[in-house]
C-alpha cells in the first residue's frame, strides 16, 4: 500500500509547477489587479476580458490555443526556438505556462475584489499625507486588500495543483516529466490501477479541502 515513486513524482511535479507558476503570476497579478481595480484607461474592458477568458473557455480550448502559440511553428514558439533553441511544448515549462494561464483569472479576481474594497478616499488621504503612489500601494492598498489577495492566491494555487485540460494539450502526459497529479489520476483510471487512483484522489481531495478552508479563513471573518 505504499505510495509509488511515480505517484511521488507526479505529486512533487504538481507542487513544484504550482509554486513556480505562483512566483511568476503573483507580481503580474498584483499589477493587473491594481490596474483593473484602481485605474481607468482605454482598453480596460479588453484587458479584463483577456484575463478572464480562460475561466470561461474549456481548458482544452485554452490549451489548444497555447499549443498553437507556443509550438515550434507557433507565433511565440518559433521565435523562442530560433532565439534560444528551446522547445516549449511537452516540457515542464509548458506545464508552468498552462497552469499559469488557467489559474491567473482566479488570482486576479481575488486581488481585484480585495483592492476594489479599499476606499479611494483612504488612498487620497495617504497622498495628502505626503505618500507617493508607490508608497500608497504598499502601505495602504496592499495591506488593506490582503484578504482578497490571499484568497485569490490560494484559489489560484490550488487550481494550478489540479489543472488538467490545458496541461495535457500543451505538455502531454509524460510520466516523470510532465505528468502532474491530475494526469496521473487520469492514467491510473485508464489503466485500472484502482489503489493508485484511491490514493491520488484522497491526496487531491485533501489538498482541495485545505485550500478552500484556508481561503474561507482568510477572506471571511
Amino acid at each position: 500500500m505504499r505510495i509509488t515513486a511515480a505517484e511521488v513524482a507526479a505529486l512533487s511535479l504538481s507542487i513544484k509547477v504550482a509554486l513556480l507558476s505562483l512566483i511568476v503570476t503573483f507580481p503580474l497579478g498584483l499589477l493587473v489587479g491594481w490596474l483593473l481595480a484602481k485605474r481607468t484607461f482605454p482598453g480596460k474592458a479588453f484587458l479584463n476580458t483577456l484575463v478572464m477568458l480562460p475561466l470561461v473557455l474549456p481548458p482544452i480550448v485554452s490549451g489548444y490555443l497555447l499549443l498553437i502559440l507556443l509550438g515550434k511553428h507557433g507565433f511565440i514558439g518559433r521565435f523562442i526556438y530560433q532565439t534560444f533553441g528551446i522547445e516549449i511544448v511537452f516540457s515542464e515549462l509548458a506545464v508552468v505556462i498552462a497552469v499559469s494561464v488557467i489559474s491567473f483569472p482566479l488570482l486576479v479576481r481575488g486581488i481585484v475584489t480585495g483592492m476594489e474594497a479599499v476606499p479611494v478616499e483612504l488612498e487620497n488621504a495617504a497622498r495628502t499625507l505626503g505618500a507617493s503612489p508607490i508608497k500608497v500601494f504598499f502601505t495602504i492598498t496592499l495591506p488593506m486588500a490582503h484578504r482578497g489577495i490571499i484568497g485569490g492566491t490560494i484559489l489560484g494555487f490550488s487550481k494550478s495543483l489540479g489543472e488538467f485540460g490545458a496541461t495535457i494539450m500543451v505538455a502531454g502526459n509524460i510520466p516523470g516529466k510532465t505528468q502532474t497529479m491530475a494526469l496521473a489520476i487520469f492514467s491510473a483510471v485508464h489503466l485500472g490501477e484502482d489503489v493508485s487512483v484511491y490514493r491520488l484522489v484522497f491526496i487531491s481531495t485533501l489538498v482541495a479541502f485545505a485550500a478552500i478552508w484556508l481561503t474561507e479563513r482568510f477572506t471571511l471573518r
Binding site: E121, L122, A125, R127, T128, L129, G130, S132, I140, M144
Partner: peptide
Amino acid sequence: PPEKRRFGYVFQEGYLFPH
C-alpha cells in the same frame, strides 16, 4: 501632486487607516 503640496487634510469621515 497632493504629496508635494504639504497641505494637512482633515476629512469629515476622518479616514484614519484602519489597519
